[in-house]
Design a binder for these strands. Structure first.
Lengths: 127, 127
DNA sequence: CATGGCCCTTCCAGTTTGTGGAAGGTCAAG
DNA sequence: CTTGACCTTCCACAAACTGGAAGGGCCATG
């Protein structure tokens, strides 16, 4: 499989696949002309990566997840711990974002939004 | 006022203030020795920036907000439109993050988290 | 066989919003 | 005069790609 084929099948753009190769997340073989050759196993890793990234895991965490995945002697507790740490980070982001949203929505509600210059949003920022 | 003083008063680190100077968000005067000299007005702009950034506005949006703030003929509708666009972005992020959270929490719940290798989290990623 | 068009490669730069550090000038106190 | 705390600029790095340029490969058609 060449890179555009595996891109279609994994749902990742070729640029991203090259990037993952650069940082060692995959090690596809090379053809005599220098083209990358992807095995089913490479494709599998890439699809795994796409899903882990979609869940918001960092690339470093994806590296760890892949390592755990390929370790038959892993403890599921280790995977769960990784996921819990990530969940805590998501919860923190949700809280911060929610606070922003509340403040911003209040300010928007209090602004007339007409042609006059008076604006509670700017007044609050300049407070 | 020198940079560390205005840093304390605005709540921004000197490095960040220099950065805002570099990108033209502020234009402090310079002393004969090359040191930046900050006026009350510079301080005010920096505090404004800190609060706008804390609400999640991008640096570009902060630039526009500052321009609106200093424009006596602005329409509050323009400020409100900027804020609404930003709010929509926050809502989108909240939704994406909420979806991630749900999926991740479900996976975590389904994982025994013991010393055995079997793990629904990895199974889902490898699906 | 040459040409076109699409694929592949590497390398460099840019994105965003700063942060860390090095090298060197300045200033006030002792 | 020295010491320590400032200040300056400049370069590099962070995350996770994305865009583009320059150059080579491969296949099919004329």
């Amino acid at each position: 499989m060449n890179i555009s084929e595996v891109g279609k099948r994994s749902g990742l753009p070729p640029k991203t696949i090259r990037f993952y190769d650069d940082i060692g997340l995959i090690q596809p073989k090379r053809d005599t002309n220098g083209y990358r050759i992807f095995s089913e196993s490479d494709l599998h890793r890439l699809a795994f990566l796409r899903r882990a990234r979609a869940l918001g895991f960092s690339v470093q965490e994806c590296r760890q997840l892949l390592a755990l995945y390929h370790d038959d002697t892993r403890a599921s507790a280790d995977v769960k711990a990784l996921a819990r740490t990530h969940l805590a980070r998501i919860d923190q982001q949700l809280e911060e974002l929610g606070q922003m949203r509340r403040t911003l929505a209040d300010l928007i509600d209090s602004c007339a939004g007409d042609s006059r210059p008076d604006c509670p949003i700017l007044r609050d920022l300049a407070r």
